[in-house]
Nucleic acid binder design. Structure first.
Lengths: 241, 241
DNA sequence: GTTCATTTGTCCGTATGTATT
DNA sequence: AAATACATACGGACAAATGAA
């Protein structure tokens, strides 16, 4: 009977709640696996899967031979993973929006076709947006998406919904699974300085992003210019084990 | 006895080899789990663990109900995870080094004590380095590490070994498990412009980094200034599942 | 220095559920 | 509707690390 959430996931959430309620405190050991098995009446496999997720997310740390402890330091709140501009801004208490949205269907130039892994004859959509937070321009965003993902869908929802990834997922059934960002610092040229309300040659973050579907195909290539003075890009990296 | 590597890890490497040899091609399905169980004479648990690692690393993609495919696009080569400056430069075929290394033991100021999660009375080491690639200055790096991690160890090895994380791991037995980077674009002031051989007000990447031990304690806080024209910071993010 | 109890790591086999074709 | 393939879950066994007796 259809409890949608798997058991291990419910156990994981239960453990998170016990941390939130102060029953498990940072830096202290939680009950050993055997005790959790007894407590929740589940198998050790399930307990270990739940704990494994919490470890992956940086909430807990396992010390072999001793036990499992709640990580003493909370990582800077889950900016680790893929998060849209919209989500990021909201998390910081800002009101995200977009102005000057322009969408066109066109042939890609060679550089863009190559990044997307398609031929130059296959059409792409160019989605240009200036994005704002509390009505102040923050980023210039120019995305290229192979037309086959968007053809036949209502593109005006991009303006309404703001989050491109949300439109892709909900309307087009294409889920972005991972992204690859290449980050540089550059100087604002005249055009971009004007758009972003900064001075000529002021520093900008320049990001080239590739977004991949679950199946590993390149869904989006985008060039993003971000005001240096108003934005911090926070990223958590874990050592490969 | 004593094969140090666990079975699932050997299976994982075996699968990687079969990709490298062209037996499994990008975008194509690999044998189903049952067949791999037969082939390698191991349990399904073990096969799934091996595949799970490859999925986490972006090498493979699971499509439920259909099978497991080798990701069609190779992610930009494993810059996903935590990698030291030394490793990063070597990977790009450059010769990393460090000049002007200065190490001192001191009391932290309030900002630094707070980041490290220690009291202002607890001593820290300040490790200042200008790092080069092919003899060209690339970054200014100023790290703060609570003294208790380094006291009693030979700090000159930092100059020799170049990689601070390697010294921490091999000499001090402190392993860096994850880092949290906050990235901004800023303008070079006079001092930093001179050190990095760039013009005044040229764009720099500015990174504030916190490095955590396996136990979740802050081991290092560092401020890093990077030449914008010579460096791309590449990062892969995965969606939380 | 050794032994011992505790705790996590690895591995197996099996059964059943769910998504896709 | 049936076959295939991955997802979840159980329970048991032994290995390896740790800290304390």
């Amino acid at each position: 009977m259809g409890n949608a959430e798997p058991l291990y996931y419910r156990i994981k959430e239960a453990l998170e709640q016990r941390i939130a309620k102060g029953e498990f405190r940072r830096g202290e050991f939680i009950p050993c696996e055997a005790d959790l098995v007894d407590f929740y009446k589940v198998s050790r496999t399930t307990v270990r899967k739940a704990i494994g997720m919490l470890v992956d997310e940086g909430t807990m740390t396992i010390v072999r031979g001793r036990g499992t402890i709640v990580a003493p330091t909370r990582l800077n709140y889950r900016v680790a993973d893929l998060m849209s501009f919209t989500e990021l801004m909201r998390q910081q208490g800002l009101r995200p929006s977009a102005i000057d949205v322009r969408i066109s269907r066109q042939r890609p130039d060679k550089a863009i076709a190559e990044r997307l892994g398609i031929g130059e004859e296959e059409a792409v959509y160019e989605i240009y947006r200036v994005r704002t937070a509390d009505d102040e321009p923050i980023t210039i965003n120019c995305s290229y998406i192979p037309a086959r993902y968007l053809d036949g869908h209502d593109l005006r929802s991009i303006e309404r919904k703001q989050s491109l990834y949300k439109v892709l997922e909900e309307d087009c059934h294409v889920e972005i699974h991972s992204t690859e960002d290449s980050i540089q610092a550059i100087s604002a040229d005249r055009t971009r300085a004007e758009i972003l309300h900064v001075g000529l040659n002021d520093p900008l973050l320049y990001i080239e992003r590739l977004a991949y579907s679950k199946a590993g195909e390149v869904v989006e290539f985008s060039r993003i210019y971000i005001r240096g003075d108003r934005y911090k890009h926070t990223i958590t990296l874990r050592k490969r084990s």
